[in-house]
Design a protein around this nucleic acid. Sequence first.
DNA 1: GGCATGGTTTGACGTGAGTCAAACACCAGG
DNA 2: CCTGGTGTTTGACTCACGTCAAACCATGCC
Lengths: 233, 233
Amino acid sequence: MQAACSQCNLHELCLPVGMSIEEVERLDALVGARRKIRRQQPLYRAGDAFDAIYAIKVGWFKTDVLLEDGREQVTGFQMTGEMLGLDGISTETHSCNAIALEDSEVCVIPYNRLEELSREIEGLQHQFHKVMSREIVRDHGVMMLLGSMRAEERLAAFLLNLSQRFNARGFSPAEFHLRMTRDEIGSYLGLKLETVSRAFSRFQDEGLVAVQQKHIRIQDLAGLRRLIQQAGR
Amino acid sequence: MQAACSQCNLHELCLPVGMSIEEVERLDALVGARRKIRRQQPLYRAGDAFDAIYAIKVGWFKTDVLLEDGREQVTGFQMTGEMLGLDGISTETHSCNAIALEDSEVCVIPYNRLEELSREIEGLQHQFHKVMSREIVRDHGVMMLLGSMRAEERLAAFLLNLSQRFNARGFSPAEFHLRMTRDEIGSYLGLKLETVSRAFSRFQDEGLVAVQQKHIRIQDLAGLRRLIQQAGR
DNA sequence: GGCATGGTTTGACGTGAGTCAAACACCAGG
DNA sequence: CCTGGTGTTTGACTCACGTCAAACCATGCC
């Protein structure tokens, strides 16, 4: 199963942003194969040797870090068009686990060949740097969440973030399915699953969001936004 | 005041890692000038146009993100040999503030020229990618801190991290001066300054650390490490 | 169709960290 | 040497979120 960026409808989000047609065709040659990952299976694990980064073609992943005593911290949820594996560049070993939240498919981008090609194609180099920088900025946002916001603010920010990402992919920004459990959301937001559940119930009561298990319908986007602006602890 | 990587004793930490002497000399030409920043002054602010990244030659910085309502989240403390400004690449606008914690000096690395040169020098490209990736991995560690650890564990991890970074620069890993206030530490760790202060006092009582204002002497490194391994909330 | 199973919701209660407030320590400047 | 300002410590009290436990609800398998 051969990947082909030039045929892929994720142009606008993925690595080929800003590249010419000819350049994207050179990228095709580089992006070796696609790989299918079944739900709950790892794409890579902390400690694995690093040799490629991955672009999500279909599906959802979570990345997490485990402490020796078993505590898990989910560091991100990744969807179509987003990149995985950047953590491995620094030490040539992956530092987190990437687990599929549903049956998924990724494009495998051998890292040394990516470096090679991005020395030749300015647009590729630039876009790759942007992707890494975007990840850093995203992480700072999560720190803000974890360090300075209260439980309901965190959940509101989380929902707004998902909404915006669905929207960018042409899906409804107001209605979507969560692929992760309350526990995983809690881990990401630094909360217990019960607190996440209670916050959902509260949003429901206040008419901000209609929640039915994993199905979410945002009813008052502005209300959610307002929730975040207010002073916290 | 001209920078010169080839004369600089930060070889081992900074961008020139892994480059040949000739290559480092080419880097000299690129790294324009040094810039002095006085204590409490910004190197850049959120919203500033991005056109360069910075390597810290001497001094200390903090980076922070501000919410509209005035809440501050410190996203990092940077010391000699570390890089600032990577957040700006993604949108060509800085997304956080970088403030000097003491009178400091940075090397200014014009970004477009860095991209240019790193297309020519493989070692520079690779090292630059590593620096960005390392930042991502660091951020994941902070998320772990903020999301899954208790107050004392956070402070212990913070001290151990400083210790290790001082050590890497040839300073004592056991005795050092903090450049930041309790409030700034608290913001970074997602705690209030009072909580930070109490945790310091507790460490002192338990003989883990001798604290005298900003002067820190770590007396029981293993004890601090042990503190982190234990199950949290 | 019934019955595990894994995930979710809700309630009652406990606690770690936040809040508020006062006292204290360390400079820097006059 | 005193004085004002900024940062730190400590105590008493509060509260948001965690913990524990029970009930509930979808889903898939026998």
